[in-house]
């Protein structure tokens, strides 16, 4: 892809946005390398969508500096960006092919190219037979697919997807994931946001964690996990209340039949296991890196949640 914009597809410096008294995004710094797949994580209301809207020049920061593909304002290079907003809507009366072609033309494609590309995309993603159907006839999953296709029709360099997985069934989540990986393989920079950590964990190279408008964590996922200590995933039968009481265990996320257990730094997993087997029945004992969820919980622990 175009490398003249430098190593970073996106740079934010001290970006701040307030709505009334509420600080939605607070002095945010962020650098996203070109060609990376970057996950924006955070609970609902953390400031993900506000950040994305500022990147897209839909709203403007009160303070700070933005650089999108080397330009201070995305407005100038809208045609090189692809955007799937959080709240997804389609023109119900338009045919899917027309809709995708329309967005292509708004992004600067000529009529013929936009039409050809719309047909090609629909065929490629298994919606070929819906080309002449009105959008109102699509199921939710299909609608979402059509919408993401209309964000990709002009082959953007930087793709920003706000909650692309929300509302999709497992099959469609799978499809969406493949699509995102395809984009990455084609060399595009992809940013997507989600509040479901597992999804990001599966595919992201980099993550960016935000809470209450402030950056919590940022960097390659491997590094983040490596610095986060050990955890044990276990499956058990019996009374889970014994877990926190066991010596050597720092904290527990207990789901009833499964739990994620965090060991104190000097504890020996072997000893802990020994102490547990008398009290509950252990079916699985799996020492691994902590989950993103745990990392997130730990990172925000110091702050008032």
């Amino acid at each position: 892809m175009d490398t003249s914009d430098g190593a970073y597809a996106l740079e934010l410096e001290g970006v701040t946005k307030t709505f009334g008294d509420h600080v939605a995004v607070d002095a945010l710094d962020l650098r996203i390398p070109s060609g990376s797949l970057y996950g924006f994580l955070g609970p609902n209301g953390a400031g993900k969508t506000t950040t994305i809207r500022m990147i897209m020049s839909i709203i403007f920061p009160d303070e700070g500096r933005l650089s999108v593909l080397g330009h201070p304002r995305a407005e100038e290079i809208k045609d090189r960006l692809g955007y799937l907003p959080e709240e997804k809507g389609l023109y119900k009366k338009m045919k899917t092919g027309e809709l995708i072609a329309y967005f292509g033309r708004l992004k600067g494609l000529d009529k013929r190219a936009a039409r050809a590309r719309a047909r090609q995309l629909l065929d490629e993603y298994g919606l070929g037979e819906w080309h002449d159907q009105r959008c109102e006839t699509l199921s939710k999953g299909m609608g979402q697919k059509v919408q993401i296709l209309s964000a990709l029709v002009h082959e953007p360099e930087l793709v920003i997807l706000d909650e692309p997985f929300s509302g999709l069934d497992p099959v469609n989540v799978e499809l969406m994931r493949d699509l995102i990986l395809d984009l990455k393989r084609e060399g595009r920079t992809v940013i997507f946001s989600t509040h479901v950590m597992e999804q990001a964990e599966q595919i992201c190279e980099y993550i960016f964690l935000i809470n209450k408008g402030k950056k919590v964590l940022d960097g390659p996922i491997g590094e983040i996990k490596a610095g986060a200590g050990r955890s044990v995933k276990l499956e058990y039968e019996g009374d889970g209340r014994v877990l926190p009481a066991t010596p050597g265990i720092a904290r527990v996320h207990d789901a009833g039949m499964q739990a994620e257990v965090f060991l104190e730094d000097e504890a020996d997993p072997q000893e802990v296991l020994k102490a547990l087997v008398d009290k509950i029945r252990i079916r699985r004992w799996d020492i691994s890196e902590p989950s993103l969820f745990e990392i997130f919980i730990r990172a925000v622990e110091g702050e008032d949640l």
Binding site: R53, M56, I58, K78, D79, L81, Y83, L84, P85, E86, E87, G89, L90, Y91, F103, L106, K107, Q147, S150, A151
Partner: peptide, 8 residues
């Protein structure tokens, strides 16, 4: 649909 439009 407004938001998609405003990105273009």
């Amino acid at each position: 649909t407004i938001e998609v439009l405003l990105s273009s």
